[in-house]
Design a protein around this nucleic acid. Structure first.
Lengths: 234, 234
DNA sequence: ACTCCTTGTTATCGACGTTACGGTGCGAAC
DNA sequence: GTTCGCACCGTAACGTCGATAACAAGGAGT
């Protein structure tokens, strides 16, 4: 039978919708299990049967809001990697400013595991950073670049949310992104050809200049590079 | 008579101390008015007579912890303004990592007025930025520079606190500060040679695709690459 | 001696997250 | 067709939280 599953999903959607509206209109403190249950027309234990926990409800709200938000935008996954990163950054900042209570709720989980929404956001950001790295545009560690962009974005949004809506420095977001990009981007692609072979060849030429490695490590890497390059059949 | 005032201060100090210890050892959720009152050997209403509010108690705890923290360090207010800013940044990051629960508590006040600790931190940062401006070292708005440093610091600390204590990228703080300083300072500090780093990063992305290498060799190279990239470049 | 302000103590309020328990309906089995 | 089993639903409650009212006690100042 499907009706039971359908009504279950309907009830679930209704609860999420009620919680979202409550969060937007009355603030985070107004999102209590009783208030949500009353607004959705269900009983309090229903929330626990469907979401297990209040945090589960919050996660579902975050997922719902983010889904409806990104559905309105077309994420350009092609084209210039840098332009894509900028677009993603702007969308992120705009999302934070559009949903202040929700963002403060999911971005500031005191301790413990980060929220699923945070993990999802980090994943899409990681994909964008990987494109930068693959294009030869990064001059820092991929993980380092990821963490820098994440920290800058999170800090910027929280700072903007911390000041009254009227006097927000709206250029702060662009300035922060420019600062991070200037620090992590290579001015021009370092290799015109990003095939594995070409990159390995280029890497072999800069290997002696890399700091923090012992001579033995450098020698081993050079040896392995030579092997992988001679392994090529063509 | 002074004894009444003295005992009042003593009781107050005892409550703050108990709350601080409770916060450090049992986490933020364990800091309840009842638990604090019992740990301090007073009754629950005493907290409200002395601090007015639970937020007041938290603010007092923050002030106490910060005071005892900065008392251990000598803040060099003279000398190079840039060096002072760097020292203040490092102290701030170190404070956040040393007091995770407290920092998460005061830095993530969802909405409403920021905590007194935040305001105090912004004030000392504002003074440092003003010295930069007075020395003619800023190439952006003073307020813009203030907000950028504040956002970067807050975001960095929250990001570091969000990952397990073992695998924190401790160079992230310096990298973020360098990124912001490069963008706001008139005198651009020396940017190290980027070519080698960029090639190394690009190489890391193609490393999994290289033929003729064992998994162990690939893992070792990835580890060495990570080390050379996170290596501090003067 | 009398009054007033501060302190200590108890009891309690309303709200919160969460859960135990009994009823209820519906498909399955005989 | 009757009965059994089981998943669901609604009521009520539990334990805890922040916050406060009410009142006793005791010393300070006049």
């Amino acid at each position: 039978m499907v009706t039971t599953q359908d009504t279950r999903d309907d009830v679930r959607a209704g609860i999420v919708s009620a919680a979202t509206q409550l969060l937007r209109e009355k603030g985070a403190n107004a999102v209590t299990t009783r208030a949500v249950a009353q607004a959705a027309g269900v009983q309090a234990p229903t929330i626990y049967r469907l979401f297990g926990d209040k945090d589960g409800l919050i996660d579902a709200v975050a997922e719902h809001v983010m889904a409806t938000y990104v559905s309105g935008k077309s994420v350009a996954a092609d084209g210039d990697p840098v332009a894509d990163l900028r677009a993603g950054w702007r969308a992120h900042v705009e999302f934070g400013l559009t949903n202040p209570e929700l963002y403060a709720l999911i971005a500031t989980r005191g301790s413990g595991a980060p929220s699923p929404a945070t993990i999802a956001g980090l994943d899409v950001l990681r994909r964008r950073v990987r494109r930068l790295a693959a294009a030869g545009l990064l001059r820092v560690d991929e993980e380092r670049a990821l963490m820098m962009i994440h920290s800058a974005g999170n800090g910027t949004i929280l700072t903007l949310l911390g000041m009254p809506a009227g006097q927000r420095d709206l250029g702060l977001g662009e300035a922060m992104l420019d600062a991070v990009l200037t620090s992590i981007l290579a001015t021009t692609p370092v290799t015109p050809d990003t095939t594995a072979n070409a990159v390995a060849v280029t890497f072999a030429t800069v290997l002696p200049d890399l700091p923090g490695l012992t001579d033995a490590e450098r020698a081993l890497m050079a040896e392995w590079l030579r092997r992988t390059l001679t392994h090529q059949t063509p």
